[in-house]
Amino acid sequence: MAVVLRDQDSQKVVLEIQDALDRNTVPEIRKQILKIIKKRDIRQVDILAHGVTSMDTAGVALLLETWRTLEKKSGALKLRGLNEGALRIIQLARLNDVLSGSIVEERNEGH
């Protein structure tokens, strides 16, 4: 399974994404994430991305959509463990300013 629910309380969930976050995996991962964050009381989603081996702009688009969905309900997205490659793609997409509030500095060394 590409998304694992690591922790949950009434307002916050912690999800772990593993392997690729790309155009092939995003459709399924998105379904799982949206199902969780559309629950009425959820205000914060932490995504643990240490296990993400590769990410493309479909992955960036999903992160942005998740961020926007939460923002609309005054919630917050936290991205933990994004690797250098993922951070560079966010930068290439010129979204580092938008997502900078979500990115928690605990990078892994993978690409």
Partner: peptide, 19 residues
């Protein structure tokens, strides 16, 4: 070529246009 939903495709298209 993909099974991506329209919302994600729209964002990806705009990212590429922004580039």
């Amino acid at each position: 070529h993909t099974a991506l939903p329209g919302e994600i495709i729209r964002i990806m298209a705009l990212i590429k246009l922004n580039m």
